[in-house]
Every structure is written in C-alpha cells, then in structure tokens.
Design a protein around this nucleic acid. Structure first.
Lengths: 222, 222
DNA sequence: ATTATCTATAGATCTATAGATAATGC
DNA sequence: ATTATCTATAGATCTATAGATAATGC
C-alpha cells in the first residue's frame, strides 16, 4: 500500500497490460507527431518506452495498427465534445444561429481540451495536424470527424442562407487549415515573430480564431 | 534533325544530364508530395524515372540532398514573384495600404503561379504544403520564405496601426494555415462537400481567400 | 578522355515470427 | 495455467560505394 522505494510494484496483469499499452501509445503519439508514420520505427517507440522492440508486436499487429490506435484513443473524446457543444449551441440559438456562435462551439471546445488536457493531449493534437494531409491520416480524419464537420456546416448554412453551399465549404476549408496549422506547433510563428508569439499558446489563439473566421465567412462571395 | 521513330535521340552530355536531372526532380517532387521524405525511397524515385537506383547517388549525395533540391528548384521563383508583387503594391498604395490589397498580392500571386504553371507546379505546391510541418521542411520554409512573409507583415502593420504586432502575426498564422491546407489538396473537401468543391480548383480558392482573410484581420482583438 | 549509366555487393536497419523465460493467477 | 516480456533469428529492404560498361567529346 506504500511502495515508496520499490521501482516495480506491479499489480494485476490487467493493470500491467493497461500501463504498458498506455506507455506505448504515449511514446508513439509523441514520435509520430514529430516524424510521421514513416519517420518512426517500432524500435524507436520501444526504445522510448524502454522495452524490447518485439513487444510492439505482442500488443499491435503492425506499425499501421499502432498508428491507428494512437489516433483512435483520443479522437472519439474530442469528436463527442464538439458534437455536444454544437448541439447545445443549436438548441440555444434556435432558428437564428450565428456564424460566430457556431465557430466558437467548434473551435473553442477543441482548443479548451488541449489547454486543459496537458502535454499528452497537446501531443495528440499535433499528431493529428501532422498526419492530416498524409494518405494514412486523411482516412482517419474522414472516419472520425466527418459528423462533427457536417454538423458545423449545417449550422453555418442556416446562419448564412444567402451564401452558396460551395462557398461555405471553402470557408470551412480555410478554418480547418488555420486550426491544423495552429495544432501543428511547427515553431515557425515563434521564429517569424521574434518571440512575440508562441506555438504552444493556445489561449492566445482561442482569443482570436473564431471571431477572425466568422468575419471571413461574412465576406464570402455568392 | 527529325528523329521521328528513334526512342533515344540524345544530344550533348550537358543536355542529357539536364534532362535526367529534371526527370529525377519531377518524380521525386510527386512522390515526396504524397508520402513525405521518409515515405519515399531512392528506389521509388529511380523506378518512377526508369533508371537504376544507384544513379540517384551519381546526381545527389543522399536522399536529403535530393529533397532539398526539389524544394529549392522552384522556391526562389515563387518567393521572387511574391516579393515583386508586394513591392509593387506597397509603391502603388503609398501611405495607405489596405489589408485586402496586401493579401491579394501575397496570396493571388502564389495561386496564379500554380494555376498557370500546370501539373508540375501544382505538385511542388503540394510538396511544400505536405512537408511544411516536418522537421526537414520547416527549415526550408524559414530559409526561403521569411523575407516574403516579413514584407507582408510590414504592410499589414501599416494598414492596421491600431492592432498589436502579436495579433497580426496570429492573423498571418491563420492565413498561412488556410493556404497550406489548400495547397495540400488532400481531397477531404471534395468528399465532405459531396463533390461541390474540388481540391484542385485553385480558381475558386483565389476568388475567396484574400477577402475572407482580410475581413478576419479587421476583426482581430487588440 | 570524360561522363552517364549500370552491375555487384557490403553493411545497416527494419519488420515479423518462433520459441524461451519470468512473472501473475487460481 | 495464463500472460507479459525477452532472446534469437529469418527475410526483406534500403543506403551507399566500388568498379565495369557504354555512350559523347575533342
């Protein structure tokens, strides 16, 4: 019940399994977020965890399965939160939703999760951003986030009945690009701004992004 | 002087060298744009060109050198065009540049090049977008495009004297994210919109993006 | 006489599997 | 008695180099 000095006070096998699995996923998440699927080997992940590389195959059939597991572990949580936030806003706004209201629900809910979730959630966000435009990542984005996006687009259409559907989808494409670029945390904005902005400062982003994009939508042609 | 049927009417060695080099760069550009640095082997590139894989090492020291050469081949051209366009607009606008004017010079000049440049230029744009948030790509982005971005930001500051410098850099971060996402041509917008939008339709993007972003800048806090 | 391309191959690395060992579980 | 981890290893692939061959260049 204390285990103060003991380095390896292991509990049940189920616990040990869960613990190792989590360590593998955490390590893979960080490595994939920096170097992508092909830039990481199973040996890299094993070394980061401190186990034999062959243990990777005990838990995952192959590298792509590990990659998909990293994505799936947190995707449902953020997708669910955003669906909820959009539904809540839709109910609240009734017949007259605004673009800004819909975007705050869509964007701020996501950023809040990373702000509050700590380093591991930030790593996952960066992993998502990093792989979103790869063949393997695009499939996962479609699979996990299409319902969220379509719910947002439905609200935007209601808020902007005079704009064409295509124009609204292009606007969404700009929004998601901006968000992905934020989540990617490449460090470019830090260098360009001479230290005025920090890639990790999602609070500063949250302060601006939804209203910035909302103004853009109102300026769409069509 | 005719060489109608001959499959290999080779000219001087300099010509042959230039021709092979170009084929290698074209093939690498397309492959890297889809799979990134680590997702492509020198054998893949050689196979696409139809030569022995060892020929890659005759022309390039290693894979990273090839990668950098693909980036550099076209980077100076688009950077130069955009610098020119921004300088021209700055001269024309004098003391009162507008955000929209600066963004049209920055964004439309780039999109025009890909629209007019054909498939190979489109591939390069997608390559840039694909690798912009990788460790290897970020270095190249900084190296080749910082002067262009800083020129844009200088114009934006002049157009928006009441906004903080940090706010303007965040706005730029949203703009570049949207542009990168467009250039990446992941096909996601095609699927989401049920075919209303096409990833390759840069004309449609050009019609919207600069004014969309300009409206966003005017809505920035600070 | 020089240069573009190919053949042959060494050495490193990576994925994946089979089977052994060392823990926990009744 | 089952399960987590490790050892050993096969097979595939990849980078990189040395040296041979086949073109162009004076």
């Amino acid at each position: 019940m204390d285990g103060s000095t003991a380095k390896r006070v292991r509990r049940t096998k189920a616990e040990q399994r869960a613990e190792t699995l989590e360590q593998i996923l955490d390590a893979a998440e960080l490595l994939f977020s920096k170097n992508g699927l092909h830039g990481v080997t199973l040996g890299d992940v094993a070394a980061a965890v401190g186990v034999q590389r062959t243990l990777m195959h005990y838990y995952f059939a192959d590298k792509l399965s590990l990659f998909e597991a990293v994505f799936a572990r947190r995707a449902a949580i953020t997708a669910g939160r955003r669906i909820e936030a959009l539904d809540r806003y839709a109910a609240e706004a009734g017949d007259s939703p605004t673009v800004a209201g819909a975007l705050h629900a869509f964007l701020d809910t996501d950023l809040d999760l990373y702000i509050q979730g700590g380093e591991l959630w930030m790593n996952w966000a960066t992993f998502c951003a990093r792989v979103s435009n790869t063949p393997e990542g695009a499939v996962l984005m479609d699979e996990h986030f299409d319902p969220v996006v379509l719910k947002l687009v439905a609200l935007l259409k209601k808020a902007l009945p005079e704009k064409s559907e295509a124009a609204i989808f292009w606007g969404y494409n700009f929004v998601t690009g901006a968000l992905i670029n934020v989540l990617a945390r490449s460090g470019r904005i830090d260098r360009l701004s001479g230290g005025l902005c920090h890639s990790d400062d999602f609070e500063a982003v949250k302060k601006q992004i939804a209203d910035f994009m909302a103004a853009g939508f109102l300026a769409l042609k069509d």
